[in-house]
Design a protein around this nucleic acid. Sequence first.
DNA 1: CTGAAAGCGCTAACAG
DNA 2: CTGTTAGCGCTTTCAG
Lengths: 373, 373
Amino acid sequence: MSETASRPTLEAVAARAGVSRATVSRVVNGGDGVREPLVERVRRAVEELGYVPNQAARSLVTKRHDAVAVVIAEPETRVFADPFFALQLRGISKELTAHDNQLVLLLTEGRDDHARVARYLAGGHVDGALVFSLHLDDPLPGLIRGAGIPTVFGGRPGWSDATLPGASGPAAVEGIPATAPAAYPAPAASGAGPTVYVDSDNRGGAREAVRHLVGLGRTRIAHITGALDQTSAVDRLDGFRDVMRDADPRLIVEGDFTPAGGERAMRELLDRCPDVDAVFAANDLSASGALRVLREQGRRVPEDVAVIGFDDMLIVAEQTDPPLTTVRQDIEEMGRLMARLLLRRLDRRTGHDPAEAPTSVVTPTTLVRRASA
Amino acid sequence: MSETASRPTLEAVAARAGVSRATVSRVVNGGDGVREPLVERVRRAVEELGYVPNQAARSLVTKRHDAVAVVIAEPETRVFADPFFALQLRGISKELTAHDNQLVLLLTEGRDDHARVARYLAGGHVDGALVFSLHLDDPLPGLIRGAGIPTVFGGRPGWSDATLPGASGPAAVEGIPATAPAAYPAPAASGAGPTVYVDSDNRGGAREAVRHLVGLGRTRIAHITGALDQTSAVDRLDGFRDVMRDADPRLIVEGDFTPAGGERAMRELLDRCPDVDAVFAANDLSASGALRVLREQGRRVPEDVAVIGFDDMLIVAEQTDPPLTTVRQDIEEMGRLMARLLLRRLDRRTGHDPAEAPTSVVTPTTLVRRASA
DNA sequence: CTGAAAGCGCTAACAG
DNA sequence: CTGTTAGCGCTTTCAG
């Protein structure tokens, strides 16, 4: 009842500064081509009135929103079990903020939400999308591509387009060969351009971990995989195989990225191959499960069995007994990269050089040595 | 170069259905007061054209955005170390989605961002804000209130307005008495209404934990506090004191919610009071630190020393040795509640019953028994 | 019940 | 350089 004082408009500022709306608009948007004294007058008027541009009105004419959607599918399992998600978001947020873009968060749970998200993205509310697709058979990424909105994926999507080297494939990092075969074909590229994604070098990181184990003189090196419906798990497995060309197949046992899965896998491993002397687990969580079983069965770590994880999830890796040697990925940086790639792509739209398409990026990993290997 | 087919407008739909724009608008917005046959015709046209309303144009006239900002301050420490943040977001997202509202995420790092956030909120881009204020002396909440936008806080803010019972105080849950004194006065209520927040019953949960310890026959019960610049830590300490009226002051030692802090505190505790037979830690992380020190010093848990945590952070509580007895809070539900409260408040704006102000809510906690106590 | 008309606040040609 | 003039796509009186 007391606050009917709606915010001042361009009109008001113009009146106060004694210029036209157009001039105020110019000043507000950078002030190029306006003589200094006028700029000054307008600035003052803006200041005095506390003028803030109305984004809706602006979008209506520019067709830009300076907003990007971040789509996270099925935030139940892994995404929410660890800080991965939060760190990634932080990186994204920083980059978007630096470029005056807003972050619209879209969380989905199962198929009901897919339509909603697709509609939203196709509805032209945001300029682009950053999407996290964890599972190979997730239909969401396809739907999103169908929406025809510029998109960058977090993690390599599971379709073929995303595995090819070259223009639309990942930038070569340490000479990674073509990755695992596609799970299903790429959705029709509906003007949204080629698949662009940011992923950490899962394969290379895995190789480094296994080589470290080899360097330690281990010979019976096992691998506890992640959930193999996720490309990260597949890529890490590929990395393991790169080094252990002719590994005893019994040394590879399927896990699911959880501590319980790690325990189960470790038990089976010990059962099948009692002579195992090293384990590379697909992530820290499953490594912690393996560690527990090892201890329970009286095997010393790392003396009897060396263990390496993946992720460097501090809350786990630093707290295990012994602390976990693991492969670190710079998660926040990945988020920042995703945003940067998307923003660049959006810029291009406004006419820079339509030729060069942005390309996927694979970020390096580093081995963090602690006590377990 | 191929996709110039901009999305259809109301105009197009109207033409196709052979009605006026006004009629289409009515149908799209619920269809009240339009005869059935017309509704049908319009619906079909919308369908065929794949029409989606332009939100910018709509906002321009309605002054509503159907968007809510979620502000998370300084996502460095605790917020990002655990899934708390993600779960809360999930609850918020679900509720907002159910009411067709968008979630705009604003992450801040330190003071530079404060101005930006304040400007954004005052800029009328969103209808309301959900803000998480962790620290007592965080200036952000004040700034936000200054923006005069409807807001609901996550966690009890540290100013006096938020501690008073009654209209603007928390709904009484199990008869919680007035909480700790204010750290600083409430910012001037600039038309944004009284402080409304959602918090879990930190004090009550702490009481329950300590009573459980008492019920176990423990007599030398210690408390490792959280970072005391956060209301949650203060409230848990208050709960501890409620039960341990005249506890030996040496049994209360300051922690900081981290495992390292828990270790440090536990060592000090053991040093000061070797006869300690139970510990209530302010959260699971510090409890895990305490557990480690206890084991290292050869004390058995729970035989010699019983330990209880707070949060029921699965990734920690289920993995400690022994698994941790702890106090659970329904984090996702808290998020949902925050959103619901805000939405209700926004609805009221549009004229329902301006009289009854929404009130803060304190959600219950439950003790989860595992092996440590 | 339906249509016509008037903007919401801003940007972007186009003149001057 | 600066002002004038059109709308962007939608909702909302106001007539009919």
